[in-house]
């Protein structure tokens, strides 16, 4: 009866999970929608344009790269879309659009395809794109749209900027009280990149990723915990919520540091990676020249990922340590 049927012969297993790479990429993108929406809501129409240009430029670059390198078209797999979206979310809302397009191009062409395409890049493409723009257009990349009404003409925008350049007292002058500052940070009514403002919505997105089993707890928990510990010892009780909710920490910990390609493959390695990200972030925020350190912290840890993996191998069943 099976004579006329073609039987496929392969090695086992013969069934597989429904969670494919493509689905993972689109779920991550969806998890970012609330934060992206809040960015557009708070910063206005130009933020929407930044997001659109970044995504389109990433997709276009991906398409051209696969075409030129004669690789199978991967534009559908969602990874380029996600890179574009993540890049946009860590850019200032008023950034000129041609710079956004250039960022998307750099992320995909240089960071991803020059290293071999999906799965082979060393650095997180979105963050590398941001770092490139930061190096190339430092002024535009640090011009923030102001949301607060500043009582005495203070123009510095992000709370981290304010703290670093003008000190705690100036920060308090703007926000009156701790509770007011923390509330604004959590909701996202502060200056900053498009997607890194609303800590609350980003945490919701992060939880979606955890529950959908796209990411594991190892990197976000170790990263955030490390930041909390260091901020407690440097800034006391005020430091913990301030450092946790301001800047790109939540976005970085849930969406950037967890990029599977550029983070360690073993759970133990992921914890080391997260701790490293936390230490570097706080080092830059407190001692470094920049007010915010998430981007460079993650990029630096990306570069030591192979090294971490070498020393964080799993324990093989039945083999004594």
């Amino acid at each position: 009866m099976l004579k006329d049927k073609h039987l496929t012969v392969t090695v086992s297993p013969h069934i597989k999970t429904a969670l494919t790479t493509e689905k993972m990429m689109w779920i991550v993108s969806c998890a970012l929608v609330p934060a992206a929406g809040a960015g557009i809501y708070f910063f206005g129409f130009h933020a929407a344009l930044v997001i659109t240009v970044c995504v389109v430029s990433s997709l276009l670059t991906e398409f051209l790269c696969t075409l030129l390198m004669k690789k199978p078209a991967t534009i559908k797999d969602g990874s380029a879309f996600l890179t574009g979206l993540l890049l946009a979310l860590c850019l200032p809302p008023e950034l000129p659009l041609w710079m956004c397009a250039l960022g998307g191009f750099f992320s995909i062409a240089v960071t991803k395809f020059a290293f071999g395409g999906l799965g082979y890049n060393i650095f997180n493409p979105a963050l590398a794109g941001r770092a490139f723009l930061m190096g190339a257009f430092a002024k535009e990349m640090t011009t923030w749209k102001t949301l607060q009404v500043f009582p005495d003409g203070i123009t510095a925008a992000t709370p981290l900027n304010l703290l670093k350049e003008q000190g705690y007292d100036s920060l308090m002058k703007v926000f009156d009280s701790h509770s007011h500052l923390f509330r604004e940070l959590f909701i996202g009514r502060v200056g900053g990149s498009i997607g890194e403002t609303s800590a609350g919505l980003l945490i919701i997105g992060g939880l979606i990723l955890l529950f959908a089993r796209i990411i594991t707890w190892h990197i976000p928990v170790s990263y955030i915990f490390t930041v909390m510990v260091i901020s407690y010892f440097t800034g006391g009780v005020f430091g913990i919520p301030f450092h946790l909710f301001s800047g790109g920490l939540v976005l970085g910990a849930f969406f950037m540091a967890t990029d599977p390609v550029t983070s360690p493959i073993t759970p133990k390695g992921q914890i080391i990676f997260g701790i490293g990200c936390g230490i570097l972030t706080m080092l830059i925020r407190i001692r470094g020249g920049y007010p915010e350190g998430v981007c460079y912290a993650i990029l630096l840890m990306n570069s030591v990922t192979p090294l971490i993996e070498r020393y964080s191998k799993t324990k093989i069943f039945g083999v004594k340590r």
């Binding site: 790479t21 993972m24 797999d77 395409g117 999906l118 799965g119 082979y120 594991t216 599977p260 390609v261 983070s263 360690p264 493959i265 073993t266 759970p267 992921q270 191998k313 799993t314 324990k315 093989i316 069943f317 039945g318």
Partner: peptide, 20 residues
């Protein structure tokens, strides 16, 4: 498709190996 190093195989391996 290319391995994206997600580490799911490492977590799933009952022998504690790194299949990827």
């Amino acid at each position: 498709l290319p391995c994206i190093r997600c580490g799911k195989c490492v977590t799933a391996c009952p022998m504690g190996l790194m299949p990827a």
